[in-house]
Each structure stands twice: as structure tokens, then as C-alpha cells.
Amino acid sequence: MSDRTDNIEPVARALYAKQMRMLGVSEDEIAATSDRYWPVLAAQLQAGLIDEDGSPIAHSVEKGLEAWYAWLDERKA
């Protein structure tokens, strides 16, 4: 991604769907849960905790929590 925030939502949604399909989750269930879970992947992407394929990059639990809280703080305004 050239600018990681420009298209982070569609990338995160696609990663979520891909991961759920690999687990055998139905398309209906993916559609029903995507709105709830794509922000988690977006926060991880933005913080560099996963790559654009959804593969994890080694990090601590603390880094994961920091990424989530930073994501939430950015959207408060």
C-alpha cells in the first residue's frame, strides 16, 4: 500500500473474508460479521503487526493492544 490509510478498510475486509473462508465460514456469516471485525485487522495492518496477506509479524500482546487503542483514538474525533 502506498498510503496505508487510503484503502485500509477494503484491504482489511478482504483479509477478514479470506481468513474466514479458510476456516470454512459461510459467505452469509462472513457478510454478517465483517462490519464487526474488519477494524481489528485494519488496526493490525496500520501498526505493521500483520502484512497485506494477513500473515502475522512477531509482536507482543502489548503492541497489539497499543495498535487497537491507537486505532480507536484516531476515530474518536
Score class of each variant (00 low, 15 high):
33 T>R: 15
70 A>E: 11
30 I>Q: 06
68 W>F: 07
30 I>A: 09
2 S>L: 14
8 I>A: 12
24 G>Y: 07
67 A>E: 07
55 S>R: 10
22 M>T: 09
30 I>S: 09
60 S>F: 08
27 E>M: 07
43 A>G: 11
63 K>P: 00
30 I>M: 12
33 T>P: 03
39 P>M: 10
22 M>H: 11
40 V>Q: 09
52 E>Q: 07
59 H>T: 05
17 A>Q: 11
19 Q>N: 13
48 G>M: 05
49 L>P: 00
55 S>E: 09
15 L>K: 02
8 I>T: 06
51 D>S: 01
14 A>Y: 11
22 M>G: 14
66 E>N: 07
42 A>L: 04
38 W>N: 06
21 R>W: 12
54 G>A: 04
6 D>I: 14
4 R>C: 04
34 S>A: 13
62 E>M: 10
21 R>T: 14
1 M>P: 02
50 I>W: 01
51 D>E: 01
28 D>S: 11
58 A>Y: 03
63 K>D: 15
4 R>D: 08
37 Y>C: 03
44 Q>M: 11
12 A>P: 00
54 G>V: 03
10 P>A: 13
7 N>F: 12
46 Q>V: 12
28 D>C: 02
61 V>G: 01
18 K>N: 14
60 S>R: 03
8 I>P: 00
75 R>P: 03
19 Q>D: 12
52 E>W: 08
69 Y>R: 08
2 S>Y: 14
33 T>S: 15
51 D>V: 01
35 D>K: 08
72 L>P: 00
63 K>R: 15
28 D>Q: 10
45 L>T: 03
60 S>H: 06
69 Y>E: 11
54 G>R: 02
31 A>V: 01
56 P>M: 05
10 P>L: 14
63 K>Y: 08
67 A>V: 06
60 S>L: 08
70 A>Y: 04
59 H>G: 03
9 E>C: 04
74 E>F: 05
46 Q>W: 06
5 T>S: 12
44 Q>C: 05
16 Y>K: 05
34 S>H: 05
43 A>Q: 01
53 D>A: 13
27 E>V: 07
9 E>Y: 01
33 T>I: 08
28 D>H: 09
6 D>C: 10
58 A>G: 02
43 A>I: 01
71 W>L: 02
24 G>Q: 06
9 E>P: 00
68 W>G: 02
7 N>D: 14
28 D>A: 12
62 E>W: 06
17 A>C: 13
18 K>R: 15
68 W>R: 09
63 K>E: 15
36 R>T: 15
10 P>Q: 12
75 R>G: 05
53 D>P: 00
33 T>K: 15
6 D>E: 15
36 R>D: 10
19 Q>W: 10
29 E>G: 03
14 A>T: 14
29 E>S: 15
32 A>M: 05
